[in-house]
Simulated assay, not measured.
Amino acid sequence: MKKTLLGLVLGSVALASLPAMADKYVIDTKGAHASINFEIQHLGYSWLTGRFNEFSGEFNYDPKDVAASKINVTINTNSVDSNHAERDKHLRSDDFLNVAKFPTATFVSTKIVQDDGEEFDIIGDLTLNGVTKSVTIEVDKIGEGKDPWGGYRVGFEGETEIRLKDFNIKQDLGPASQSVKLKLHVEGIKQ
C-alpha cells in the first residue's frame, strides 16, 4: 500500500512538472470566420483591395506560454479575388503570382514573441511565387471562449507588409506600389 501511495505521489509530481501543452486549433474557413486580405496602392491615387478565397491552416496556442505557440497556413493562390475578373486573370499570370507554376503559398511560424499583454509578433517563413522569406506579422488577440455549439474558439487579427520584388514579382506598378499590405483575421476552433 505504501509503495502504491508513493508511486501515485511521485507520478503526480512528475506530471505536474511537465510543461503545459498548447491547445490545437483549426482555422475556421468553413464558417467563413477567417480571411486573408490584401491592399496595394494604385498609382498612388487610391487603394486596390482583394483577398484569397481559399486557404486552410491550424495553430497551437497556449495563452500562458505564447512563445510555445505555432501556426501554419496554406493558401490557394488561384483563389485571388480583387472583384475584377480581368485583373484577377493578370494577378494569376507569371507577372504576379504565377499560379500555374506555384499554386500555393505557405506561411510557417518559426518564432513567436509576446510584446505587451495580448499583442505579439509572429515571425515565420512565407513562401510565395517560389521564394521563401522571413516575415513578421504583428498580431492582436481579439478574444476567446465557448461558442454556442459546445466548442471553444480563439480569434486574432494580424498585419504585415511585403515588398513585391522580394518574392520575384516582376511587374512594376510604379513607385507608390512597391509593397502590399496583408491583413489577416483568424478564428480557430479548438480540436
Score class of each variant (00 low, 15 high):
residue 65 D to H: 10
residue 127 T to H: 11
residue 11 G to W: 12
residue 67 A to R: 10
residue 72 N to L: 10
residue 110 T to C: 04
residue 76 N to L: 05
residue 154 V to F: 00
residue 81 D to R: 04
residue 159 E to H: 09
residue 22 A to H: 08
residue 112 I to P: 03
residue 65 D to K: 12
residue 146 K to E: 11
residue 127 T to G: 06
residue 46 S to K: 02
residue 65 D to N: 11
residue 145 G to K: 02
residue 137 I to S: 10
residue 17 S to F: 15
residue 52 F to E: 09
residue 11 G to T: 04
residue 120 F to T: 12
residue 120 F to P: 09
residue 98 N to A: 10
residue 81 D to C: 07
residue 40 I to G: 00
residue 157 E to C: 11
residue 83 N to Y: 04
residue 161 E to G: 04
residue 167 F to M: 13
residue 37 N to P: 01
residue 55 F to N: 04
residue 15 L to S: 03
residue 26 V to Y: 04
residue 14 A to P: 07
residue 20 A to F: 08
residue 80 V to Y: 00
residue 143 G to A: 14
residue 11 G to Q: 07
residue 75 I to M: 07
residue 162 I to T: 09
residue 95 D to A: 00
residue 34 A to L: 04
residue 34 A to M: 02
residue 104 T to S: 15
residue 37 N to R: 02
residue 19 P to W: 05
residue 142 I to K: 15
residue 117 G to K: 14
residue 33 H to V: 00
residue 146 K to A: 14
residue 21 M to N: 03
residue 74 T to F: 03
residue 110 T to V: 05
residue 61 Y to K: 08
residue 75 I to Y: 04
residue 4 T to W: 12
residue 67 A to S: 15
residue 93 S to K: 05
residue 100 A to D: 15
residue 24 K to L: 13
residue 44 G to Y: 09
residue 112 I to D: 05
residue 170 K to D: 06
residue 115 D to L: 15
residue 178 Q to V: 15
residue 88 D to F: 13
residue 37 N to A: 01
residue 88 D to Q: 08
residue 21 M to Y: 07
residue 144 E to R: 02
residue 178 Q to C: 10
residue 107 F to Q: 02
residue 147 D to K: 08
residue 100 A to T: 11
residue 160 T to W: 00
residue 41 Q to C: 02
residue 94 D to W: 00
residue 148 P to Y: 12
residue 31 G to E: 06
residue 116 D to N: 02
residue 111 K to F: 11
residue 170 K to H: 00
residue 63 P to E: 10
residue 134 S to L: 05
residue 19 P to I: 04
residue 163 R to A: 14
residue 71 I to M: 15
residue 25 Y to P: 09
residue 81 D to T: 11
residue 188 G to H: 01
residue 12 S to V: 15
residue 43 L to Y: 13
residue 4 T to A: 03
residue 58 E to C: 01
residue 60 N to G: 07
residue 148 P to I: 12
residue 2 K to L: 12
residue 9 V to E: 09
residue 88 D to W: 13
residue 16 A to M: 12
residue 62 D to T: 06
residue 5 L to K: 02
residue 93 S to Q: 04
residue 137 I to D: 08
residue 123 I to Q: 15
residue 115 D to F: 01
residue 37 N to T: 06
residue 6 L to R: 13
residue 71 I to C: 14
residue 55 F to P: 02
residue 49 T to Y: 01
residue 160 T to R: 04
residue 190 K to H: 00
residue 89 K to N: 12
residue 5 L to A: 05
residue 141 K to G: 07
residue 64 K to R: 12
residue 188 G to V: 06
residue 114 Q to T: 15
residue 134 S to I: 06
residue 6 L to N: 14
residue 174 G to C: 07
residue 1 M to T: 08
residue 163 R to Y: 12
residue 179 S to P: 05
residue 21 M to P: 00
residue 13 V to A: 14
residue 100 A to P: 04
residue 66 V to S: 03
residue 72 N to K: 14
residue 124 G to C: 10
residue 109 S to R: 09
residue 114 Q to M: 11
residue 166 D to M: 03
residue 100 A to I: 10
residue 167 F to W: 11
residue 97 L to H: 02
residue 96 F to G: 09
residue 63 P to A: 08
residue 154 V to C: 05
residue 139 V to D: 10
residue 55 F to A: 05
residue 68 A to W: 14
residue 67 A to C: 13
residue 89 K to A: 13
residue 9 V to Y: 08
residue 154 V to L: 00
residue 70 K to V: 00
residue 135 V to C: 06
residue 142 I to P: 08
residue 15 L to D: 06
residue 138 E to G: 12
